[in-house]
Amino acid sequence: MSAPGSQLRGSITALALLLVAWVFLPAAGRLFTRETFAELQAPSLSLLSRTRDLVLTAEMKASGAAELAAAGRDLARANAALELRVAELESAASENRRLRSMLAAPAFPEFRTLVARVAARESGAWWSSLTIRRGRIDGVRKGCPVVFGDRVVGRVSAVHVNTSEVELVTSPGFRCSAFIEGDDAPEGRRSMVFVEGQSPQPFASPRGRVTYLPYTYSPPAGQPAKVVTTGLGGLYPAGLRIGTLSPGLEDTPGGAYRNGVFTPAADLLSLREVGVLIPTQPQPYEELR
């Protein structure tokens, strides 16, 4: 081996050559390496997540019989209340279907829900990401919306065989249409706003932007206004909560509309489980991204 200096020179030269080769490597080649590394890591991530689940289960198993009995009783009560709700909702749904068929209104895309565990998560000043333990073999497709209960989490940004990456509702590049609570206009004339993620702010909770609020809009007094999905764009069903509008709206230059900031409805930093909504019919966004 030669002197360290010349060795460094050699390495740097090699590196520069590799870099040039990399830049001119066809996109497919680069995609291949990226996919390969994602796939190689998937089992270990999965293993890690499962181990954590196991630990959690073990922890729960350690709880005493009295504790379990109490929890079971609480659940039974909650269950009874929920069953009542389900019955109500079912009748509402059938009424809804009847009205819809009377109006010959287009049906929203139907979704199949897939429950997925969160395998890894990161939230730095520079990016936030979520890896879920469901992938191509479970039927997850790129662009599928991700929810937690009736709250919007984000959408699938990359799909691997066993895992997927989720782009959060606050990530730059996320965009969807929404209605705002407190917009007094009648149903058909409510003004639609756009919701989009924004560049992350250092060490702050992730937040997104609400744009094109009507100039006449003023938030309801006393409580933050909810931002909900419209169901018009084909990405989300209607009525899911995206977040709440933070106080303080900013007028756009020209004064034709206003912009605001929202806090996501789902606690993106402590989610353990999410639902992936897979449209039964493929949507255009799956090919257009």
Partner: peptide, 23 residues
């Protein structure tokens, strides 16, 4: 609204996306 909503939800955003919605 429907057209606007479909545009924003079906098409991607980003620095390289040449399509945009201009108010």
């Amino acid at each position: 609204s429907r057209r606007l909503a479909r545009f924003v939800e079906q098409l991607p955003t980003g620095a390289e996306e040449p399509l945009s919605l201009e108010p």
